[in-house]
Design a protein around this nucleic acid. Structure first.
Length: 561
RNA sequence: UGGGGCGUGGCCAAGCGGAAAGGCAUCGGUUUUUGGAGCCGACAUUCGGAGGUUCGAAUCCUCCCGCCCCAGCCA
């Protein structure tokens, strides 16, 4: 059915507003985020989290956090812990409503019994292979199991024996009795309980039979009173099954609404592939800053605000789509521009000696912390005769439109003085530029000139004797192909060999010594950085580059070829 | 040859019978002690295609084309 919507609402909100208007659920809105604890969550999950918690919040409802833990073999507390941490970090609060499908095992078992007694489920002794054969194909109907019409009492007995551990794994399953000829394969007498003699991370060894996801998810929603069950497109043809269970069980009926999952270019979103990256050592772990996992993004320096903003901007719809990673980058830049403290760090240092600056003179220059934030104040930065500037900020033989330093040219040192390059010292053999000799104009202290003389370029710098060595990690997209998920190549061959560039010779202004994890920085003219807690040590801070600044000079270079 | 979905600019996405919002990207200009940020402007005569209904269609109807999902005792 088509629902009218107010502008600015996505189609799901429109449906909910309509339900509210029609007085459904007594005006309540209950949603839930239902991860399986079998891996770390990624930005695609973040979309779902923002959607579910966002909608509940917007309509005066609540959102539960429920773990759909129905497959003990693949699940682990490590994952439930990381997921809880990530949801919290994203800024959402499930209050007291932390649930697990395993909380409902007893109820689900009773539900199954009810179905059997109604003649709507039966214990089947076909082998897994036989069940597959009997299922039919996409174009041919399936065949009914020979056990389908066995007496209700027999199924009840058998199911109880399954539960008490009398049978081996794979020997018996409980199946719903629906329609082997349905065009929807989910309705062809689906398995709803199987024997799994596995240790469960929460129920231990109490159970040897476990409900299938399809027999747990919808009922869990129902038990929790979830009014709107939001899930991804691939569950669209499971909906008739869920509705069937709800109807036969005569329990509260949530409304399921499906939306398209998030795809991002130059990365992968499938848990299987992310796991493969981790296990093959292609990345350092789930929280490698190149990973699209929430933990990876956090370590990379993304803010929760920027991720929520991103989720807002990509919208919610049913069409398969791939969002440009540039949008995510735009969201962090916008957020960090307002809040990141500006500091100076020289990634690839080139020594500069200011010949007319007194040998032992030192001075402290005032530097503004963030021009975008008037409340951020200033700090003092030491200056002396020998400094380092960025190697890229000098060219001996510059092309047109190069506004930086070159022989005879004058630039401004941010917060400091104008300097002019008077000599270039090179290695006699290699020709490599070792050092620049410059002069400064004492009348330009602070970076202003009284005579109104203009300089085109401004460079960042650090004082040689005051600078602190820092480690810098420069990241680039993890994959070389825009859509690695649909490539024929193997994952290892798709990984961008330049996705990680470790810089060891970088120097930072002294204040960086006290940089703390969780602080956001902008290294002037370069990008946004944060302290990597894992890589930093007491004697050397290591910074991750979250994202570069937009760079119109680099863009010109690309145009030039 | 079954069932379920989806097709609006390079990428997302509004639109719900009165005549193409917005964001990102891109390209100009302006401003600037970050070639950053900001500001201003440009960017679909057209909505997968073809017919039809209508005074009027991206919106309704018909047919066609394309893409995605489903044959786990995974979720």
């Amino acid at each position: 059915m088509k629902e009218k919507s107010a502008p600015g609402l996505n189609f799901i909100e429109s449906i909910i507003e309509n339900d509210l208007k029609n007085g459904k659920n007594d005006g309540n809105v209950v949603t839930r985020f239902p991860p399986e604890p079998n891996g770390y969550i990624h930005i695609g999950h973040a979309k779902s989290i923002c959607l579910n918690f966002g909608i509940a919040g917007k309509h005066g409802g609540v959102c539960n956090l429920r773990f759909d833990d129905t497959n003990p073999g693949k699940e682990d507390v490590e994952y439930v812990d990381s997921i809880k941490q990530d949801v919290k970090w994203l800024g959402f609060d499930w209050g007291e409503r932390l649930y697990f499908a395993s909380d409902y095992y007893e109820t689900l078992y009773e539900y199954a019994l009810k179905l059997i007694k109604k003649g709507k489920a039966f214990v089947c002794e076909l082998t897994p292979e036989q069940i597959r054969e009997y299922r039919g194909t996409l174009t041919e109907p399936g065949k009914e199991s020979p056990f389908r019409e066995r007496p209700v009492e027999e199924s009840v007995e058998l199911f109880k024996k399954m539960k008490s551990g009398d049978f081996d794994e794979g020997s018996h399953v409980l199946r719903a009795k629906i329609d082997m000829k349905s065009g929807n394969l989910n309705m062809r007498d689906p398995v709803i309980y199987r024997i799994l003699k596995a240790h469960h991370h929460r129920t231990g060894d109490k159970w040897v039979i476990y409900p299938m996801y399809d027999f747990a998810h919808g009922q869990s929603d129902s038990i929790e009173g979830v009014t709107h069950s939001l899930c991804t497109l691939e569950f669209e043809d499971h909906r008739p099954l869920y509705d069937w269970f709800i109807k036969e069980l005569e329990i509260f009926a949530p409304r399921q609404i499906e939306f398209a999952r998030l795809n991002l270019n130059y990365t992968v979103m499938s848990k299987r592939k992310l796991l493969q990256l981790v296990e093959a050592g292609l990345v350092s772990g789930w929280d490698d800053p190149r990973m699209p996992t929430v933990s990876g993004l956090r370590r990379r320096g993304f803010t929760p605000e920027s991720i929520r903003d991103f989720a807002d901007r990509i919208g919610v719809a049913k069409r398969d789509s791939t969002v440009d990673i540039a949008l995510l980058e735009h969201c962090v830049r916008e957020d960090l521009n307002k809040r990141a403290k500006r500091v100076m760090g020289v990634l690839d240092p080139l020594k500069v000696v200011i010949e007319n600056y007194p040998e032992d003179k030192e001075e402290e220059l005032e530097a503004i912390n963030n021009p975008e934030d008037p409340d951020s104040g200033t700090r003092m930065v030491p200056f002396s005769r020998e400094i380092f500037i960025e190697k890229d900020d000098f060219m001996e033989d510059p092309p047109k439109k190069f506004f930086r330093l070159s022989p005879g040219k004058e630039i401004r040192l941010k917060h400091a003085y104008y300097i002019k390059c008077v000599d270039v010292i090179k290695d006699e053999n290699t020709g490599e530029i070792l050092e620049l000799r410059c002069t400064y104009d004492p009348k330009t202290r602070g970076g202003w000139s009284e005579d109104g003389r203009k300089v085109k370029g401004t460079s960042h710098w650090v004082s040689a004797k005051h600078a602190v060595p820092i480690g810098v990690m420069i990241y680039d997209r993890l994959f070389t192909e825009e859509n690695p998920g649909s490539s024929d190549k193997e994952l290892p061959d798709l990984v961008n060999p330049d996705s990680l560039n470790v810089l060891n010779g970088s120097l930072g202004e002294p204040s960086l010594k006290n940089a703390k994890p969780g602080e956001y920085f902008q290294f002037l003219r370069q990008g946004y950085f944060c302290v990597d807690e894992k890589l930093s040590s007491s004697d050397k801070q290591v910074f991750n580059r979250t994202v570069s600044l937009r760079d119109s000079w680099a863009k010109l270079g690309k145009k030039r070829g």
